[in-house]
Amino acid sequence: MPLHYSKKVMEHFLHPRNIGEMKDHDGFAEVGNPVCGDQLGFYIKVKDGTIKDVKFLSFGCASNIATASILTEEVKGMTLEDAKKFDWNKIVKDLGGLPKQKVHCSILAVDGLKKAIEDYEGRKK
């Protein structure tokens, strides 16, 4: 079945923002969806309680890449507290919608980011 991805999804898939490794990060987490098999890795750099920089790695579908890409754009500069409350519905909306079976990609992306924050907070303790 054709997926009918929106223009915005395709744009982020073809030109993902903030992609690649981050050497001197403050937090890192890897997540995967056991059903579809897709995986994401998130790196964050934190300063004064805000996300100063964020990068991601992806082994996943076009929507996996696009959702993580737009998420990194939206949370860069955000306080950790706000980022922890980030609602995946916002990504779906901002991407101009996702195919029904692809909505979970946005949930995986947000989960990955939150786990990277947890990793950062764990290190501080």
């Binding site: 395709m10 898939f13 073809l14 579809c36 082994f59 996943g60 579908c61 076009a62 929507s63």
Partner: peptide
Amino acid sequence: RIEGEAILMDLSVKGICVSTGSACS
């Protein structure tokens, strides 16, 4: 190390039609 649907979509943008058995598709 890379996912089939992403390969397929990337090729599709370049005008190449293929298929994949990947779960994502």
